[in-house]
């Protein structure tokens, strides 16, 4: 396929993912509201918030890195998207995935955080730096069980290509990594809780903690970019976990259903459990999930 068509389909995919991310955020907020016996926001409230943020008239800047922070964050989210095969066995929806894309995506997951750290550090708000160091420390701890799980399934399937991993899981639900390598799935799903920023691990973003953490100074369009990225990132990380552990998707409908339930797992846990402090969450993540991850590698290699 020539590059122009390919780019067109990639942009179309990005558009669909963005819209699904915004609507999913609205649906999730609605479910949370109903669980706490409220009517809650409208499903399209994330769209309105986004339009409103993009239509703020005045913007302040604190320097070049302040501009680049949201840009880096967005390129982190879009970067994961670019190299992620969305639909199994479909050439047009496989984006730019290639043989070693799993490593690249694991890198891109951290890239956005680092860019955000540089930007928020220049924001001038004294607590931004605290929020950022908390966020980076916690995200580093989240990455450890995830990396162990990725290593485990890389050993299991003997490849680092996501398309290959999806292809090996076809042919019935029992071929999913969920059943062929349950320990890796458990370790990865625990780190997924942290990556999504819901309750046990959301102290970094929690507004009650040192006012709002990293994005304190971001407003207007900057915040709009961050919100856009968050909508993309939530879906595309769910797609990553779907591809690695839940058999991928063979059409868009399956993708939407599976990402919804994978994302809902973090919301479900977040509704039930209270929030960890950073000094509690990091030791917790580095104990049992890491042990499960190591065990999964051991079992695969045996």
């Amino acid at each position: 396929m020539e590059l122009a068509t390919k780019t067109g389909f990639v942009l179309l995919g990005l558009f669909i993912i963005l819209n699904w991310g915004l609507i999913m955020a609205g649906i999730i907020r609605k479910i949370i509201a109903r669980a706490s016996m409220r009517r809650g926001i409208s499903v399209f409230q994330p769209y309105i918030n986004l339009i409103k943020n993009y239509s703020i008239r005045s913007q302040l800047t604190h320097g070049v890195m302040f501009y680049l922070g949201p840009v880096f964050r967005l390129s982190g989210g879009v970067g994961i998207f670019l190299f992620m095969p969305l639909i199994h066995d479909s050439e047009i929806w496989s984006n730019f995935s290639f043989a070693g894309d799993l490593i690249l995506i694991a890198y891109f997951m951290f890239f956005g955080m680092l860019g955000m750290a540089l930007g928020a550090g220049e924001g001038g708000h004294p607590y931004s730096a605290i929020g950022i160091s908390r966020g980076l420390a916690q995200f580093t701890a989240i990455e450890v069980p995830l990396t162990l799980a990725i290593l485990s399934i890389a050993f299991q399937y003997n490849t680092l290509s996501i398309s290959e991993i999806v292809a090996r899981q076809q042919g019935g639900i029992l071929n999913w990594t969920l059943f062929t390598n349950p320990l890796a799935t458990i370790a990865a799903m625990i780190s997924f809780l942290g990556a999504m920023g819901h309750a046990p691990f959301n102290v970094v973003m929690a507004p009650q903690e040192n006012p709002i953490g990293p994005p304190t100074e971001y407003h207007g369009t900057f915040l709009g970019v961050l919100q856009t990225n968050r909508a993309i990132l939530h879906v595309i990380e769910s797609v990553l976990f779907m591809n690695l552990f839940f058999g991928g998707a063979s059409n868009w409908f399956e993708l939407i259903v599976k990402t919804f339930f994978i994302y809902f797992w973090s919301v479900f846990v977040g509704m039930v459990f209270p929030r960890f402090r950073v000094d509690q969450s990091i030791p917790w993540l580095l104990k049992i999930p890491v042990l499960i991850g190591i065990l999964s590698i051991v079992f695969i290699l045996l």
């Binding site: 509201a33 706490s36 016996m37 409220r38 009517r39 809650g40 926001i41 409208s42 409230q45 309105i48 409103k52 703020i56 302040l60 507004p207 009650q208 006012p211 709002i212 994005p215 304190t216 100074e217 971001y218 407003h219 915040l223």
Partner: peptide, 21 residues
């Protein structure tokens, strides 16, 4: 709170003046 639920009117609280209108 659930009784009055201002969220349904699009009202939300923000902790920082930069983001609030």
């Amino acid at each position: 709170s659930p009784r009055y639920d201002a969220y349904r009117f699009g009202v939300a609280m923000r902790p920082t003046p930069r983001q609030s209108s």
